[in-house]
Computed example of a mutant assay.
Amino acid sequence: MKLISMVDYVLANPKEDHVNYANFLNQPLKLEMFVPCVDGEPFNYSKHGLKEDFEIAKEKVLFEGIPMNEIDIQMLMVYAKKEKTIEELFNESADLDFTLTPSGIKKCQ
């Protein structure tokens, strides 16, 4: 499911309960929404453990298909410190294609 603005969602789904989606969009950003993390830092096998630990961290990732490099990760950390929400990032990053992972879809239903 591609992430869309609240207005577009309401117009496309006028009979559904929109509270969960609105609450999802109003969540403060966390790095773990974009890359697997342990204690707020990107997962590293030598530091954080085994494949099972990676799979647990990966379950918290809500978005996929967004290329992440070190600069992107640092930018997300700045956004998180400023208490920006998912919707604010979405509105400010129109050039990115935000696609929800299965975990992300569960969170907004």
Rank of each mutant, 00 (worst) to 15 (best):
S5D: 14
K60H: 08
L50V: 10
V78I: 09
L76S: 07
L76G: 09
N91G: 00
L3N: 04
F90E: 05
E83C: 06
P102D: 04
N23I: 02
F63D: 00
K84S: 07
V61K: 04
V7W: 09
V61N: 06
E83F: 13
Y21E: 03
V61F: 09
E52P: 01
D72Q: 10
S93R: 05
S46I: 13
A57Q: 01
K47Q: 15
E88R: 02
Q74M: 13
K107P: 04
S5A: 13
I56K: 15
D53Y: 10
D72A: 13
D97W: 07
A22G: 15
V78L: 06
C108K: 01
Q109F: 08
A94N: 00
E41S: 15
K58C: 05
I4V: 15
L62F: 12
L3K: 10
N13W: 05
I105S: 12
P36G: 14
L50A: 12
K30G: 02
F98L: 01
E70H: 11
T101A: 04
D72M: 10
V78A: 04
F98P: 00
Q27T: 09
M75H: 01
L25I: 02
C37L: 03
Q27D: 05
L96H: 11
E64S: 07
A57Y: 00
Q27I: 10
G65A: 04
D53M: 06
I73M: 14
L76Q: 00
P36K: 12
A22V: 14
K82V: 05
F43H: 05
D8E: 15
I73Y: 04
N44G: 02
K81A: 12
V19N: 13
N69Y: 02
E16A: 15
E88F: 10
E87N: 11
K15N: 15
N20P: 05
D97G: 06
A57P: 04
D72Y: 13
F63G: 01
L62G: 09
F90Q: 07
H48T: 08
F43Y: 15
A22S: 13
K15C: 08
G65D: 07
K81Q: 14
D95V: 09
V35I: 05
E83G: 11
L3I: 11
A57H: 01
G40E: 02
S93W: 09
N69R: 11
E64F: 10
P14N: 02
L11D: 08
K107V: 03
M68R: 02
D95Y: 14
S46Q: 14
S46A: 15
V10Q: 10
S103Q: 01
K107L: 08
L29W: 07
V10E: 01
E87Q: 08
E83Y: 07
K15Y: 11
K15F: 14
N69E: 07
K107C: 12
K47L: 12
A12V: 07
L31D: 06
G49N: 08
T101S: 12
C37T: 11
F43S: 08
N26K: 12
A22K: 15
I56H: 12
M1P: 06
G49F: 02
K2C: 01
S46Y: 14
M68K: 03
I4T: 09
E55D: 15
K47A: 15
K84T: 05
V35D: 07
M68H: 06
E88T: 09
M33C: 05
N20G: 13
E32K: 13
M33W: 03
M77K: 13
M68V: 06
S103E: 00
M6C: 06
E87P: 02
A80D: 07
M75N: 12
F34P: 00
E55S: 14
A12I: 01
